[in-house]
Design a binder for these strands. Structure first.
Lengths: 192, 192
DNA sequence: TGTACATCAGTGAACGCGCGTTCACTGATGTAC
DNA sequence: TGTACATCAGTGAACGCGCGTTCACTGATGTAC
């Protein structure tokens, strides 16, 4: 073959990687194929040599973002347990940089409105994420761990969504801080 | 004047009311002016006699949705306190009918990406909502009440966002139920 | 009560624009001789 | 080593479409006589 195998794979990877940031920043509908490809010094026509359509890019780049976010979460857990996870997830830095953060607060409401196949891909990844976090919990049964992970995730995701929407810095910060406080109490209780 | 005062006001109200449902169902970008007006048996041109632009409609109809949602929340609180609120908010019925439900899980991620004026209108309404709910809490200080409301709201909003995105019914239900369980424990603790 | 009139809520054609997608093509590349 | 060639990653014009917004207008209405 006249191009190395790596070549096309690398371009594909670059598109997915960049798209995952753009989607987190502007939403699925706020990112156009032509502009996206242009920012990568490519033209829009080539897009369809890599993806069946925009929906396929959405599913793939969402999964990448969730994987990357999970990696960060696991590192925090290994370094400092749940307190470290709360510190990093519920930080102002995370709030102010959606492009590099967890895709759930930025995009899960939009995922709910997309095709069934996109939602299925999302669901599978989310379940994997819950399982990976659950392993770090002290609860005895699997279902207890899953329940606690679901709750903590819901609270963190909701807090981040609301904190990003709030225009008043004090309100935004208060949402992050109170969620941090209550969740910290919850994960510390189990140690006593 | 040749039309009654009520006439234009009533048309304006119909547009905002219907738009608030459409936005919750399809997102801000998923609703077009022409189609919206068409469904109300009006033509798109008339829209600009009622609103400066689409952004103004977004701000106004989001505020309406949040007001209506607050009314429902307050009724639940008066009827059965926080347990009743959790029952209704974290129900499958609420999950499956976003058009008539709370706009926060459906739209707060999108609000975060809109104009500052829209975000300011959102922030003010959200603060009012928090205050109204806070009055039903037993905590002694205002800031304790606000902190608890922020946390409960964040958890409910996040749980609903994730539950709506999840394609697997068992996962979706599990998120709602575990959030319900943990929040119920939280609001019952204070009684002991 | 019946008619002429002024108002303005609502109409609908038109605008420029960006969207997702298709497709005939081009030209940089690795390979074969 | 140097050249001819086949491949296919990427190009860019074109498609139909819906978007938000503007604006000259129409015609249903309540009012004045």
């Amino acid at each position: 073959m006249r191009y190395k195998d790596e070549h096309k794979i690398e371009t594909h990877r670059r598109i997915v990687e960049f798209a995952s940031k753009e989607f987190r920043t502007h939403g699925f509908e706020g990112v156009g194929i032509a502009k996206l490809m242009g920012k990568l010094d490519l033209t829009h026509g080539g897009f369809y040599a890599h993806f069946a359509n925009k929906e396929a890019l959405i599913a793939e780049s969402f999964a990448l973002a969730l994987n990357q976010s999970l990696d960060t979460v696991l590192v925090a857990l290994e370094v400092g347990g749940f307190p470290a996870l709360l510190d990093f997830y519920l930080s102002e830095n995370h709030r102010d940089h959606p492009a590099l953060g967890c895709p759930l607060p930025a995009l899960s409401a939009e995922v709910a409105r997309r095709s069934l196949s996109t939602r299925k891909a999302f669901t599978e990844k989310l379940s994997e994420v819950f399982d990976a976090i659950a392993e770090h919990l002290p609860e005895t049964t699997y279902s207890q761990k899953r329940a606690k992970v679901s709750f903590i995730s819901a609270a963190m995701v909701g807090a981040m969504s609301l904190a990003r929407a709030a225009a008043e810095p004090s309100l935004s910060k208060a949402i992050l801080e109170s969620t941090h406080e209550y969740l910290l109490t919850l994960v510390k209780e189990e140690l006593s």
